[in-house]
Structures are given as C-alpha cells and as structure tokens.
Design a protein around this nucleic acid. Structure first.
Lengths: 212, 212
DNA sequence: AACTATCCGATAGTTATACTATCCATGTGC
DNA sequence: GCACATGGATAGTATAACTATCGGATAGTT
C-alpha cells in the first residue's frame, strides 16, 4: 500500500479512505494483514482523482459512476446511468412548465425521454435566465443546442471506436464526467479568442511624445 | 426583510447570511434598525441562488463573480474576471507540458493567452484521459473545440445584444457560469437523442408464443 | 528468539462550508 | 404602554472529505 501511495502521490490514509468508501477495490490478500496492489489499482486511483478533482464529483457520486463502469449493463443504458449519477436530482415539480416547454421547443425533433436529467437541468437554467430578465435568450440557447449535438455525435463516435465493452463503458463514463470539464475549458479559451478577434487590443499609444 | 424572504422563498437567516457575506447589498435604511429592500434585491437574490445552486459555486466564488458584475471594468476584461472567478486555481507547474502542447495544437490559430484558465483546465483533462489510456482522444477533442468556438461566438453575440454596460457585464457573468450548466444539460439530452437514433430500441419481441 | 518496521482495519479527530438558531438592544405600530 | 418585529452579532449544526492515531499481528533482520 505504501508503494501504491508513492506511485500515485496520494497519502496512505486517503487510500484507506477510498477503500472504505468502496471506490477502490481491495488488493489481493497475500496474508491476513498483507495485500498487494497492481497496475489496475493505480489506474483506478487516477480515475477516482479525475472524477473528484476535475469532474468535481462527491465521493458518493463517484462511487455510483464507478459502479456503472464495473456493471455489466448494456451500453445503451450506461449513458443513462452515468448521466443520472452526475446530475443532481431535480424535482420536475419545481420547474416552470413554460421553461420545460421552451427547452422542448429548442430541441424539437430530438428523441429525448421526459425524465432525461439534462433536459430538466437545461430547463432550470432557462428558468433562471428568464427570471433574471435576460432577453432573447432562446436564440442564444438554440446555438448551444446545435453545438451540443455536434459534441454528442463526437462522444458516440469515440465510444464506438473502443475495442471492448469495458473500454466502451469507461469511455462513456469519463466522457460524460470529464467531457463537461473539457468543453467548459475549451469554451473559455474560445471566448478569449473570439473576444480578442472582435475587440483587438489597440496598439498601445506611444508614450514617447513625438518629436516636433 | 420578512417581505423579501417571503417574495424569494429564502429564509430570513439565510438572507442575513448573504448580507454578511456581502453577496447582497444592504437595504436602504429607514431608521436605525429598519431597512427596506426593493426589486433589485429580489433580482440579486435570484442571481445568487442561480450561481450557487445551478452553477454550483461556493459563496466565496460567487462573491467574486458578483463583484465583477458591479465593477466598472471594461467589458473585454469582464470575461477574464468571470473566468478566473469560476475556475479553480490550477498550478501550471503540475500540468504535463505535453498535454498543454496538445491543447495548443488543438486550438491552433486561436488567440489565447498562456494563462487562460480554460486552456489549463483543458490540458488537465487531456492529461487525465491520456493517463487513463484513452486512445485517439485528440480527434475527439478537436470536435469539442469546434463546438466550443460556435458557442463562444453565440456568447459574444448575446453580450453585444445587450443595451447597457451593466446588462452586458451581467450577461457575461451569468453566461459564463450558467452557460456551462446549460451546455452540459443540452449535451446530455443530445447524447440520448443520438444514442437512440443509432441504437433504436428493437420492437419488444412478442412474449406470446406463436401458435403452431 | 528478539526486535524493529510495516501492515491492515477501526475509530476518532480535523477542517471547511453553508447554513441555521438564538440573543439582545432597539424601535414601531396599534 | 407594550407585544412584537428588526437588525446585528455570536454561536451552533450538519455534512463532506479527509487525516491521524491506535492496536494487534505479521514480516523481515539479526
């Protein structure tokens, strides 16, 4: 275990904590008080840290996500499980039906079930925007929807490119969790880019007075 | 204050807490122990709840974001301020230079400064994907970059559509924070859509045995 | 065999965050 | 005149994610 700690950079006490929380499977016992850990444990630790630090998941949520990877669910369901695990529960009851209808109009033609957590989350955002009086946000949002579709296609393609079912399931899960972080990072970079393009920094007016 | 609590659905104790934390400006004093709150306070409360609940920000981070709205910064800097407020500090030192280079190649041609928090965050994600052995993720990511660019254009357009500088600043901020939530919601919906398209639910095989 | 170091597992403690509840001195409104 | 609300300050609570310590046992060293 000390070795695992050294290799991963995570303190022993924390590794024990993850074991207790069933995020990390127990090592192979070599004696009543000895166990050995292998490459898979190191890999799993990296996954855990990715989910917690980058994905910002709670330990409980991360356990759900990891269980989904380990489960033998058909792939088509893995997305749903991963999505539900990372989305915090939203009571459809306290979402403005108008906002829900607004989202549905935005994604017209999409095959989305009524309890898709993303649909509810998007409606919540729309509701907040409207209550803040943001104007004409629907056309703004429709461009988000178009981009989301592109990304979703990319996600599915990447999943299909995996060799085995386990690899696919893992890609679904880390794609769902870390994909959010990736996109928001790239969006921030793109915002700076577009902003710089549109409002070029004017050449600093020369502080040296012109000679005359 | 009781009235503000009733109108917003937020307990008085919590409103006091927000006042203490300087998320909410003090009401207009009508006496040494009396103050009145107006529409703007209600609006601000809604903004606060949106940032905390939907955006998932901490109170401290939300204060930074709100200060950015209230500040008189030129708009071009508001994005940077908002981005820095919502991104957790990443030490560029513990990011694999290869991952950074990978992201830079992905966004080749973009005008992005070296310390853009999104660039660092994206590199961190790339690093995690690579350490998990995800294969061929660069081409996957490049499609994210293309989508991010679309969204960033939409963001800037929406900001430009605002009437006043304050409205623009607020749009920058809520767009930065809530836009992440919106996109990930729409992405989840789109994933279900694309997945359903590609793997249609087979018509349930009829459980009734055929007569013969 | 003695001794030291390490291990596992359990338990308890710590820190940070976001509230939430209580007090109290004042002041308002009937 | 007086019950009651208000604002401000202070203290308490709940949860989450670690982190530190302890005890019994075993492994390796000599």
């Amino acid at each position: 275990m000390a070795e695992l700690s050294r290799a991963s950079g995570i303190p022993v006490a924390t590794i024990k904590f993850y074991l207790r929380e069933r995020l990390l499977p127990a090592g192979e016992r070599t004696g009543p008080n000895q166990a050995s850990y292998g490459e898979e444990h190191l890999r799993r630790l990296r996954l855990i840290r990715g989910l917690l630090e980058i994905g910002g998941l709670s330990v409980a949520t991360a356990r759900g996500v990891i269980d989904a990877v380990d489960s033998e669910l058909p792939l088509t369901q893995s997305f749903g499980v991963a999505q539900r695990a990372v989305s915090d529960k939203i009571d459809p009851g306290d979402i403005d039906p108008d906002a829900l209808a607004g989202i549905d109009r935005l994604v017209e033609g999409w095959l989305v079930s009524g309890d898709n957590p993303g649909r509810l989350a998007a409606a919540q955002v729309l509701q907040t925007f409207e209550s803040l009086g943001q104007k004409d946000e629907r056309s703004w949002f429709s461009r988000y929807a178009a981009a989301a579709l592109l990304v979703a296609e990319a996600d599915l393609d990447q999943v299909e490119a995996q060799a085995s079912r386990e690899d696919m399931a893992e890609t679904v899960v880390i794609g769902t969790v870390l994909g959010d972080a990736l996109f928001s990072g790239l969006r921030r970079a793109a915002q700076e880019h577009v902003s710089t393009l549109r409002y070029p920094v004017l050449p600093e007016p020369d502080p040296t007075p012109t000679r005359e």
